[in-house]
């Protein structure tokens, strides 16, 4: 998942005594792992939180096409070009499934798109970082899709049916993305001196932004507590980040690359690595719009949308004319 700091009701989790009978019945279903479907009754806060989260996730898939699209025309072999095209095509498909899942909650794709383009809704901070050398295509697949999988695998069990089903489809494709990314890294890490340098450079730049993808610690957040209770969120940000680091460190070692963290050390007691936190100041800057690529990414999406207006209008007008001709003929 690419959702960070999704606001929930902000009111904290209601106790059983505070719940209305409807709310209590709803919570019972969630506790029994019965999926909530679009036609079922749901608290307004649940619906709104899900729209924010699914919307942010969908926008991330869409904007996420840009940093990888940046290298499609420079891919070094036909096969790499084909794989990258297939991956970016998948990401657009993920965006589509997710917008469809959001639509079941009563918000249209166009409304969500407007919110993305105006900057009212966010997408993952990771896509505001640039892809500067070919090894970034490896680092993105390995670390960014890797972090996304870490988040999305548990979300296959999320309480909202359409979201859970979208996650199941998406996860299958994400693991292919991660593998192809790791494969690029492997080639680069075993390649010429210049390629090794590219690989290390890509890892140096991507590591902390990848850790930021899980969001700041949310162990005291009322928003997260509510999302956890509703099973919109399954694990805390810190748990996911820890799991990601533990999985990734041996992979980096296998590649012979160095994770840019002097404090990285195995901790026997906790059975995981100790590691440095990313610079959260930088994270909040990026979220506020001051990342290296925020302006360019939003401008690119706005331009695509604005330049495409005549196409959407044209196709709509044609569909209407055709429908009218059909009615007239009947």
């Amino acid at each position: 998942m690419y959702a960070q700091m999704v606001k929930s009701t902000g009111e904290g989790v209601k106790s059983r005594d505070e719940m209305s009978p409807e709310e209590a019945a709803f919570q019972d279903r969630i506790d029994q792992d019965i999926k909530i479907e679009p036609k079922d009754w749901m608290p307004e806060g649940y619906r709104k939180t899900l729209i924010r989260q699914i919307g942010q996730h969908a926008h991330s898939e869409i904007v996420g096409q840009l940093p990888e699209g940046n290298w499609i025309t420079r891919a070094p072999t036909l096969e790499r070009k084909a794989i990258l095209l297939a991956k970016v095509q998948d990401e657009a498909g993920h965006g589509l499934y997710l917008y469809c899942a959001a639509e079941t909650l009563g918000v249209s794709r166009d409304e969500l798109t407007e919110d993305l383009l105006s900057g009212r809704m966010k997408y993952s901070s990771i896509f505001n970082y640039p892809t500067l050398n070919w090894a970034d295509m490896g680092a993105v697949g390995w670390l960014v899709d890797g972090a996304a999988i870490m988040n999305q695998v548990p979300l296959q069990r999320t309480s909202f049916g359409p979201y859970s089903r979208a996650m199941i489809r998406i996860c299958k494709e994400e693991s292919f993305h991660q593998r192809q990314g790791y494969d690029i890294m492997m080639k680069m890490a075993q390649g010429t001196e210049a390629q090794k340098k590219m690989a290390q450079d890509a890892l140096n730049r991507t590591w902390y932004p990848a850790l930021m993808m899980f969001g700041p610690s949310d162990k005291d957040s009322v928003h997260s507590a509510q999302s956890l209770a509703w099973k919109i969120k399954i694990d805390t940000n810190d748990e996911l980040r820890q799991r990601f680091v533990d999985q990734t460190v041996p992979q980096a070692e296998y590649l012979g690359l160095t994770i840019p963290d002097e404090n990285l050390k195995w901790n026997d007691e906790k059975g995981g690595y100790d590691f440095s936190q990313p610079d959260w100041e930088e994270f909040f800057d990026v979220v506020r719009g001051n990342g290296p690529c925020n302006v360019d990414r939003l401008a690119a999406r706005n331009k695509a949308w604005d330049d495409g207006a005549w196409v959407r209008d044209g196709l709509l007008a044609h569909a209407e004319k055709r429908a009218a001709r059909k009615t007239a003929a009947e």
């Binding site: 499609i72 095209l85 959407r312």
Partner: peptide, 19 residues
């Protein structure tokens, strides 16, 4: 065609052009 990636008028076209 691949130059369009991420810049199409509508999501379905992004997918179709990439394809």
């Amino acid at each position: 065609v691949s130059e369009w990636c991420g810049h199409a008028p509508v999501l379905e076209e992004d997918i179709a052009l990439a394809n």
